[in-house]
Design a binder for these strands. Structure first.
Lengths: 182, 182
DNA sequence: GACGCGATGTAGCGCTTGCTACATACGTAA
DNA sequence: TTACGTATGTAGCAAGCGCTACATCGCGTC
């Protein structure tokens, strides 16, 4: 018999992968349990609630992403806004990051309807993104918070565009963003 | 007894309002029927399917939006990319259009998971947006399709930002987009 | 060996889901 | 008046939902 903590941790680990792959829309307890390789009974033994499962999984996922982003675009050297737009828009459309962006869109869609607990999670992750961008902008940039917010909007928009158009259109938009002037 | 066509049209009318207000997440037949003021039995008499209900409602909603957009930003005079960004980002965040953008995010989130029929609808509406933007760009603009795609990404991104941050951040980002250079 | 306690299985509750079968009203045509 | 087709109500199905009650298993302690 594994301990409760061990089982819980393993479940989170496995569910992180599963949620990233399948999204938020089909998250019943039984499906989650199957993905974690346990019974729904055990899932509710490890976690108080379906909501608690989701919160933990999304937080774990946020942590994993943070690491990946740090590695993908290091905090130094600092970048001009143009360079940052180019780097971020390329990264956000890479196969590694794309699944997360899809999930990110789903979280925001749920948050837009005030579905607990997504609203709070969306704010958390959004703030993390903003900080991540701002930390990579050169100190020469005027009004870094505004520029960071603009860049975040741009890369989120690119992710949306990728879904609602053919991939080429998103490609074109990304390149166009890299050019002067906006 | 109203005719089938009349009942159907009235249901679409009422459901359009309802879906715009409450989103895609809670769309059970019984809830839809209640919103339309009829029984679920009648809803499935008017429509073949739950899917058909949703498709019709979203298409009707797309039509309504098209009209509103035409009025909000007339096709003439033509605009520079900067002016178009400013106009579109202001419009997209107006109280009239905001509910639609929230719904738009939800449709894309569903489309990202290939949930029928959202993938197709998202493509349709996305193409409409692109055409709408492009038609308002000055002929002096080089590479209008790319610019239109960029602007669409920007305003979609603004809508996301509005959900995952406080309203002020989206405000700042919108203003920053209006400045040179990107 | 008896006991206690954490870990796990089985079964099922009450509810919602999309959808259907059947019966009934009602207006019109013969 | 009868017959028929369209319109509508009532009831219910099988499946899935989140969650819980209860029994059981197996290990450590006395």
């Amino acid at each position: 018999m594994a301990s409760k903590q061990e089982g819980r941790a393993l479940a989170i680990e496995r569910l992180t992968t599963h949620v990233l792959a399948t999204g938020l829309s089909q998250l019943s307890l039984r499906q989650l349990a199957a993905a974690a390789g346990i019974s729904d009974r055990m899932l509710l033994y490890y976690f108080h609630d379906k909501t608690e499962v989701i919160v933990e999984v999304l937080q774990h996922l946020g942590g994993a992403l943070t690491g990946e982003l740090e590695a993908a675009i290091p905090p130094t050297p600092k970048r001009s806004s143009q360079a940052m737009i180019a780097a971020a828009s390329a990264m956000v459309r890479s196969p590694d990051v794309q699944p997360f962006m899809r999930l990110w869109i789903e979280v925001i869609a749920a948050a837009a309807r005030d579905q607990a607990p997504y609203a709070q999670i969306a704010q958390q992750i959004g703030a993390g993104f903003l900080a991540w961008i701002e930390a990579r902008l050169s100190d020469d940039e005027p009004d870094k918070p505004a520029t960071a917010a603009m860049i975040l909007a741009m890369i989120d928009g690119l992710a949306l565009l990728e879904v609602c158009s053919d991939g080429e259109t998103a490609d074109i938009a990304a390149r166009r963003m890299g050019r002067e002037p906006g």
